[in-house]
Amino acid sequence: MKDFALARLVAMRLGLGLVSLLLVSLAVFAITSLLPGDVAQELLGQAATPEAVAGLRASLGLDQPGWLRYLHWLGALFTGDAGKSLVNGQPVVALIGSRLPNSLMLAAATALVSVPLALCIGITAAMWRGSFYDRLVSTLTVSVVSVPEFLVATAAVLVFAVHLRWLSALSSVSSIDGIVSFLRVFAMPVLSLCCVIVAQMVRMTRAALIDQLRAPYVEMAILKGAGPVRVIWSHALPNALGPIANAIALSLSYLLGGVIIVETIFNYPGIAKLMVDGVSTRDMPLVQACAMIFCAAYLFLVLAADLCAILSNPRLRHR
């Protein structure tokens, strides 16, 4: 009975996530295909004859009503066909397919480094709140969060590539032939991304934990004679788990924004770079497909955060 209620809640969140994704796809399609006006005219230029424009329009399917075009587009996307690039005529799926693993690798490496690091810093800062260490962490994280990602990245290049000459400023995935070169290629982008995400995650983790440390049951634990480690591990952390999982998921969603800048600055061959190039050349099928991938990833993270919050709530787990 109680499991059923919980399962229903989870199922509802999943359903809502799917609806959101559908609405997002509608928004992406509307912005890129319906609102800007006549693509055929634009492709052929002002000098084109009306017959030529009409012909292209028909061949692109632009003479059909908007909702039908949307359904066609969505259906095709569902079967793995994202159309052809307007710039070089290659299938969009192939273009993305060659880049996606690189981006995933970057994201995975960043997550692997940043999550444990951020949790350690966040938890210790909360434990020793008000101390010099805590104030230092707070100041640093506020600064990092409120400066642009490209400042962090350029500063990293300046320090590690220009002054210390430890790492190369540009990344080339094809030149990986060993662990050292792997590190050299990945270190800079991962470092820059980590900076931003760790700062974000530390702030949220610290806030979530401090929120719990203020609760009366923590005072009670102290008055039972519990030491600081027990207070944190047995009392505050179990209750902060939901908020912290939430913080991790939401911080990782900043990865999506950060990766756009970082891939560009380091000329890293991932899909964010691909998308930015697509936007510059106004390659709509490519932009649409990339936007859907990013939005889906974002929604997935938000959904994961929500589910963590639901599952870690004792009131929902044990009715």
Partner: peptide, 21 residues
Amino acid sequence: LDTLSAMPSKMFALVVVAAFG
């Protein structure tokens, strides 16, 4: 507005810029 915030901010901006310049 919930639907609007289901897109990461940079992504929305990129899509709009791609469409409208």
